[in-house]
Amino acid sequence: MAETTTTTPVAGDDPPRPDGPSRTDDSRTDGSRTGDSPAYGVLGDSLRTYRMVAAMWIRSTMAYRVSFALTLFNSFCVTFFDFVVILLMFGQVKGLGGFSFAEVAFLYGTAGTAFGIADLTMGSLQRMGRRVRDGSLDTFLMRPAPLLAQVAADKFALRRFGRVVQALLVLVWSLFLLDVDWTPVKAVLLPVTVVCGAVIFGAVMVTGASALFWLQDAAEVTNAFTYGGNTLLQYPPTIFAQELVRGVVYVVPLAFVSWLPALYVLGRPAPAGVPDWAAFASPLVALVCCGVAGLAWRAGIRSYRSTGS
């Protein structure tokens, strides 16, 4: 008797099983208070979810190590051949649009690394269209975690890391070849550029994925901006039409991913009459892009229609 009276009020590690419809409200609010602490915020929650889901996918990929090593190597090779094209080209010509091989390699490295990071972390968003079409997005929406993090981390493919490594190698190589007067500003600008570039690419991917809530088959349009944008940025702006260059400065601000800051590092003027200070505007542009992407995403979720049944 005495034992039962003492154990009941104790909130032990093993809570008493709620019996019948009299389940207490108290235990529930308690539970949600600890789990739902507002200190986390959406961003913290998103990061936590992303880490969790991505970690699980990595673990499941690592179950087949050889297969993983092969796909990683494959991803590395595919992007490497991409660069071989540039190598071959410079076997025939001395410069491209007035840019030396080292300079083109530098452009290639900065854009490629930024894109690689974005592709690694956000590439799964491409599959959103299918999820919207077949209604399997419902499942994600029913879970107590931010949707964007769930979709972006879904089937997290570590093999995409091969692209990052390849672009990074080219970037490092170009740094040895380049003849640049390094200043502290330039030294700081380079890593900042790569990070901001990845964020801008990521924001474009999210914005594109948001459009899929309405246009389920528009994934290719986004790819034109992301994969296409990456290819565009790997070459000097001087070889493209000025209208195109202006487009990626003012419309879809991909020029801030690498062109503008990289040209500053190389000591070259900004293209298409863009003011020189624009080279330092990448963080601001990245922030604005994230804002636009966030709004688009929210609007997309609210207009999600699911499927029949």
Partner: peptide, 19 residues
């Protein structure tokens, strides 16, 4: 939605919520 998700359970016969 996410706050509510912790308090409800959903089973769709035609669709799995599992990975």
């Amino acid at each position: 939605r996410t706050r509510l998700a912790r308090r409800i359970g959903v089973v769709f016969g035609q669709r799995t919520t599992l990975w």
